[in-house]
Amino acid sequence: MTALPIEGDGSIDWTVVSHVNGLARHLPSGVDSLLSFLGEYGVPLLSVLLLALAWLGARRRPDAPVAVAGVLWAGIAAGVALVLNVPVRAMVQRPRPFVAHPGRLDLLTNHQANGSFASDHATFTMAVAVGVLLVNRKYGLLAMALAGFEGFLRVFMGVHYPTDVIGGFALGTAATLLLAPIAMAVLVPLTHSLARGSLAPIVLAQRRGRSGRGAVPAAAVTDHPDHPGTGTPTRGDLAA
């Protein structure tokens, strides 16, 4: 069991928390409530929305089964990273800022006094962002910006130290990248199999044929033996 020391008044972590959280005193209560909602629920939901948009775009790509597998891994990786954070919190047992410094912060949300390191919200949003970035640069960069904003909000709300957020970012990134080769080795054959069955719309977007009658898979070319690129991708293969 490892315990991080309670940050004193002179520590960088406490200095940053006290200054960032202090901004709440100069903002209207409605703005504080909105930022608190975004930090607790809104930004993670927006990250999931970007994940869904990345999936819609992946279905239209020539390498759709591979790209969809990448999007699927982004979502799974976020869950895996959260699970990995459970033993991390149990080992570190770091008090949250509002617990270590009672009455000295404007706590903007009712929060459990559980372990502070690492931040679940930072872990989740960064895992999604890294996974999406491997598939779609535009949505991935937007997801990265959301993750950064989420990290700021968790400090602003008084529920995390900056190093809690950095630790969450590191955990989310490591879980997504290090486990990606194994995950993709399983998910790519799965999505190729789905593309050939009744669940093909999950993997392949449908588009109207030239005659206007019926529909053909927009990415059916990936199943043709004369077209390479149907195997497990590298990071460059996934990014668009």
Rank of each mutant, 00 (worst) to 15 (best):
P5Y: 12
E7Q: 11
E7D: 06
G8M: 13
G8D: 09
D9V: 11
V17F: 03
V20F: 06
V20R: 03
A24S: 08
L27C: 07
S33N: 14
L34P: 06
S36C: 04
F37D: 13
V43I: 11
V43P: 04
L45Y: 10
L46N: 14
L49Y: 13
L50K: 09
L56A: 12
R61L: 13
P62G: 07
P62V: 12
D63G: 08
P65G: 05
A69R: 03
V86M: 13
P87D: 04
P87C: 05
R89Y: 09
R89D: 01
M91P: 08
R96Q: 05
P97K: 04
P97M: 00
F98H: 08
F98S: 01
S116D: 09
L134K: 01
N136A: 11
G140L: 07
L142D: 06
A143H: 10
A143W: 14
A147W: 01
A147S: 09
L153H: 00
G158L: 00
G158K: 04
V159D: 00
Y161P: 01
P162Q: 02
T163A: 11
G172R: 00
T173C: 15
A174T: 07
A175V: 12
A175Q: 05
L179R: 15
A180G: 06
I182Y: 11
H192G: 15
S193G: 06
G197N: 12
L199D: 10
V203C: 01
L204V: 02
Q206Y: 12
R207H: 02
G209W: 14
G209S: 10
R213T: 12
G214F: 05
A218M: 14
D223T: 14
P225F: 12
G231D: 07
P233T: 03
L238M: 06
A240I: 15
A240G: 15
